[in-house]
């Protein structure tokens, strides 16, 4: 303030600028409101279209919750929505989604955390300034491009390297998905690691620890809440990512946890089938039900992650003990 010329300083005190400040404040406030409202509206819309699965008797002639979960009368579990007797078992889709998410995280988390640890603990300033933006740039690659790469190139490499029967499987799709997940996990984890106070590192070095021991045994545990949050965000992305999986999974609704089998995921199913499903028909409502399910799971995952991170952070700062013992020492 003091560096401003007196005339400019005056401006802040004029009633007109008070009005301006109000307007700005209200704009910011209402944009926050818009975001929340959009979220609620989306959920209401998805939920409304999903609801007939539970309530509508017309839909129940073809499908209900029990038939989606329990084994079919014809035996086994099957996803055949376009059929003389449509079958809507969720199990194949669930297993497919689960296995591709796991494979993606198994690849992405070690790579992303390794890169984050390298960037924050080992890389010289110059390399760090290049590495971080470059990895973050990965997040900007459209997922359809990643999917296309997985479909055309990655699938062939993996098939040749491991002699896989199927080109399109959970490993191919999981690796493609990892490309989308890595930047998220990396960015958040790197921020968490960088935020660890230097005094922890100094303490460790002063005990004769080398950089690797310091990074692994002190910095990483100290950054655990943030690193965990990074992994949860990554899992959420892997769970909901559509285009990469649609293109590189083979979309076969098999009941299998074998990562070398082709599979069909929730998100890809919605993307592939919603365009075709008869508006208002059972298939249409089932797809919205899947959408609502995805929404709830990702939301729940983020919420649980948030809660756990908070708890972890408190524990790190020794707060849980104070809380449980009423602050006594």
């Amino acid at each position: 303030m003091s560096s401003l010329p007196p005339a400019a300083e005056d401006l802040f005190l004029r009633p007109r600028s008070v009005l301006l400040e109000r307007i700005v404040e209200w704009t910011i406030r209402s944009s926050a409101f818009v975001v929340i409202a959009a979220l609620v509206l989306i959920f209401v819309f998805v939920g409304k279209e999903a609801l007939p699965i539970l309530t509508s008797s017309a839909v129940h002639e073809e499908v209900d919750l029990v038939r989606m979960v329990a084994p079919l009368e014809s035996g086994g579990f099957s996803w055949q929505p376009v059929s003389t007797v449509p079958k809507y078992s969720l199990l194949p889709l669930f297993l497919g989604t689960l296995k591709v998410t796991l494979v993606a995280l198994l690849f992405a988390i070690p790579v992303a955390l390794g890169a984050a640890i390298f960037t924050s603990e080992f890389a010289p300033q110059g390399i760090r300034e290049v590495l971080k933006p470059v990895v973050e740039l990965l997040a900007g690659i459209p997922s359809v491009v990643v999917g296309f790469f997985a479909l055309m190139v990655l699938a062939t490499w993996l098939q040749d390297a491991f002699g896989l029967l199927l080109r399109l499987n959970a490993i191919t799709a999981g690796l493609g998905l990892a490309v989308a997940v890595i930047p998220i996990v990396y960015t958040v984890a790197e921020d968490a690691l960088t935020a660890v106070p230097q005094v922890f590192r100094d303490g460790s070095f002063a005990l004769g620890a080398n950089r690797w021991q310091t990074a692994w045994r002190v910095v990483l545990p100290a950054a655990m809440p943030g690193v965990f949050a990074a992994c949860v965000l990554g899992a959420g992305r892997a769970f909901g990512e559509t285009m990469i999986v649609l293109m590189s999974s083979g979309n076969a609704p098999t009941v299998s946890l074998d990562p070398t089998e082709s599979f069909r995921s929730f998100s890809a199913t919605i993307a592939a089938e919603l365009g075709e499903a008869v508006h208002g028909g059972p298939h249409y409502h089932v797809l919205f039900f899947l959408g609502a399910f995805l929404f709830v799971v990702t939301f729940g995952l983020n919420l649980a992650g948030h809660w756990y991170v908070g708890r972890l952070r408190d524990k790190m700062q020794g707060k849980s003990r104070l809380a449980s013992r009423g602050g006594g020492r």
């Binding site: 005094v199 922890f200 303490g203 460790s204 002063a206 005990l207 620890a209 045994r217 002190v218």
Partner: peptide
């Protein structure tokens, strides 16, 4: 060895803090 201006125990248990040095060695 060195002790710093602000106490800087690691965000680990009391035991692990003390055992840290011997462990890394």
């Amino acid at each position: 060895g060195m002790v710093f201006q602000r106490p800087n125990p690691f965000p680990l248990s009391v035991f692990e803090n003390v055992a840290y040095g011997p462990r890394i060695h």
